[in-house]
């Protein structure tokens, strides 16, 4: 578990470095879901270099596509892309687009960016797996602000209707969206109760506790006849002192001085 914490910390450094290098990007919501991605990619999902190009396998959909720096960082930790690739993020001619493009970047299972769509795609993948009676599972991270989108609830309805117990959604509940706090911009609380009312099994965990996220994901595998959502309580900008809980760092790049502070917060280069 100490190794995984190191991986998460390294990802956070890469997230701030790549956003700094690109002079644009979304650090806040990337830092909030970093530990969730570590749990998924290193403890839960069966995705590796051998099956990476298989049409059927466990799949991951980053529905909040603007958290692409976090996704790219974990793909780099898995060895699917390189550190050099990360440093081309958002630059011309790069395969590391502002929002993930599955046709360009190895390991991206779905192109996302327009919020509210990823969960529906994950529903389709899960239905296909059910039809084939295979054991593959589909994982999807959504944002809390993203749940303002009506399509999330269309997908939630369908996932419960079709009893998709092979689908796991993790809600990155950092409480903030671009214009401010969820409850001020559009109060969509209580999200857990809403999913429960839609027929989902609901777990709540500390989204920065890799062990707890892992345990919840494993527990979800035992739930039959309904989909599971893990409400992961997180901190937007987690790990960088001046970004934590600041909506202003949703989509803004640190300057040179801010990068230095961020890296110092994360334990140096």
């Amino acid at each position: 578990m100490e190794d995984l914490k190191k991986i998460a910390n390294n990802m956070r450094k890469n997230i701030v470095k790549m956003v700094h290098n690109a002079k644009a990007g979304h650090p806040g919501g990337s830092l909030s879901c970093t530990d969730i991605l570590v749990a998924l990619y290193f403890n839960v999902m069966h995705i590796d270099a051998e099956n990476l190009h298989d049409v059927q396998r466990d799949k991951f959909v980053m529905s909040k596509g603007h958290a692409s720096p976090a996704l790219y960082s974990v793909l780099a930790e898995k060895g699917f892309i390189t550190y050099d690739d990360l440093m081309t993020f958002r630059l011309i001619d790069s395969n590391i687009q502002g929002h993930p493009n599955m046709l360009e970047c190895p390991g991206v299972d779905m192109s996302t960016g327009s919020l509210g769509q990823g969960l529906s795609v994950a529903v389709g993948m899960s239905l296909a797996n059910k039809l084939d009676k295979n054991e593959f599972r589909t994982y999807c991270i959504c944002g809390d602000g993203e749940c303002d989108e009506g399509q999330i609830w269309e997908a939630a309805m369908a996932a419960a209707h079709y009893k998709l117990d092979n689908l796991l959604m993790i809600l990155d509940h950092n409480g903030l969206q671009i214009d401010g706090r969820n409850e001020d911009v559009m109060n969509n609380a209580p999200l857990g109760a809403k999913f429960a009312a839609f027929g989902w099994n609901v777990f709540s965990v500390d989204g920065h506790d890799i062990e707890a996220v892992t345990a919840a994901c494993k527990a979800a595998e035992q739930v039959k006849g309904q989909p599971t959502v893990i409400i992961a309580e997180t901190v937007k900008g987690k790990g960088v002192s001046f970004m934590e809980n600041q909506a202003g760092w949703h989509g803004k790049a640190p300057n040179d001085a801010e990068l230095a502070i961020a890296l110092k917060d994360l334990g140096g280069e």
Partner: peptide, 23 residues
């Protein structure tokens, strides 16, 4: 045959999920 109810946006994206898994 899968009915998605009166929810065309969800249906269209679910179709993508089917396609990406080989259907």
């Amino acid at each position: 045959h899968f009915d998605f109810g009166i929810a065309e946006a969800n249906m269209m994206d679910a179709a993508v999920g089917f396609a990406l898994n080989g259907k």
